[in-house]
Design a protein around this nucleic acid. Structure first.
Lengths: 198, 198
DNA sequence: GTCTATATGTTGATAGAC
DNA sequence: GTCTATCAACATATAGAC
């Protein structure tokens, strides 16, 4: 699965940069090759079509993002601390890997139907994970939430929309934005009586 | 500005549908023409290039979205009511016009530099409008906000990210989602002492 | 305003030398 | 694995008839 050669990973990174900048449809295999300093034929050594390249990027990216959410949850026990960590790290991931994350989030529709189905499963796992944590918080009385699934979606939207505007050059702002998002997510769900705000 | 013939508006709608589905770079002028039942030459009657077509869609869309925010604010006086209405109507707009809104939000990078500069101004106006309302709420004691600009961005993210996943076929959910987003935005900013939650 | 036809360049992908 | 050379299809955009 993740046994990619260095050359292969360089190819994926070049393709992701190009897709993020010009979109999947607006990127030519020559664009990608030029970013690696190679000829366009080099693109087809590891992947048979441009779409397979996109799928590899998308699959790897979704797995990474899902792992980030899982690790954040597993690092702590309290639902409030779990949600805070999840939003903080998920936001960070979307800023640190802004270009790859943009492809992951925006080029779903460019995947072949068979590949879309696989990615859909990974996305569902992310939603379910978030819904579970929100549900645990409601059960413990820490959260007050009327619509679990809608609120989970909204919390993830806060992080995902970063790829639309965040400039990876603004590295200094990353931590500030990640903390802001995590704090805002807490406000969105916290019971008024257990406010953690300063 | 908004003096578009019916044929012209049909062209923009066909182009927006195509761009939303396949991306700007992935859409050919033949795609657009086929959606209108015309030949590809018909695309060039009103606009000289594919990019001009995108700019027309983007400009019109941003103006509409900005007007929606302004009207929501102007309809009421209290900052809390203003913010609720803005998020409610801005969310609605992104769901009702999901395909056009997707082009508006995602194809900024495909615009020519001169056009990007104009669109940037409209986006800045939206941010400023939101920051102002949040600032008024802080001044009146209704809101408690540490980072005005960051929070304004987050509130708009909630609405904008709808275009990534919302299916216009799910018309029944529109009002539910719009109300949820507006309620969540209130939680994000409301002073703990003035909670409006049920 | 719309068509057919077309000029000119670019595209994804492959063949075959090294 | 990487290159050069190439193919057939497709791209944007235009010319000129109706």
């Amino acid at each position: 699965m993740s046994h990619l050669s260095l050359a292969q990973q360089r190819l994926l990174d070049a393709a992701a940069d190009a897709f993020a900048e010009k979109g999947f449809g607006g990127t030519s295999t020559r664009d990608i090759a030029a970013r690696m300093g190679r000829s366009s034929a080099a693109v087809y050594i590891h992947y048979g079509t441009k779409e397979e390249l996109l799928y590899a990027i998308s699959f790897q990216g979704h797995q990474e993002a899902l792992a980030v959410l899982r690790e954040a949850r597993d690092a702590v026990e309290d639902p409030a601390a779990q949600l805070w960590a999840m939003v903080h790290r998920f936001s960070q991931w979307h800023m640190v890997h802004a270009r790859r994350a943009r492809v992951v989030q925006y080029e779903f529709g460019a995947l072949a139907e068979e590949h879309r189905a696989e990615i859909r499963d990974l996305r569902r796992e992310m939603s379910q994970l978030t819904v579970e944590v929100l549900g645990d918080g409601v059960a413990s009385g820490a959260f007050v939430i009327a619509d679990l699934e809608g609120t989970a979606r909204a919390v993830l939207s806060l992080c995902i929309d970063l790829v639309r505007w965040f400039d990876p050059g603004l590295a200094r702002n990353q931590e500030r934005v990640a903390v802001l998002n995590a704090d805002l997510a807490m406000r969105m769900v916290a019971s008024p009586r257990t406010s953690l705000e300063g």
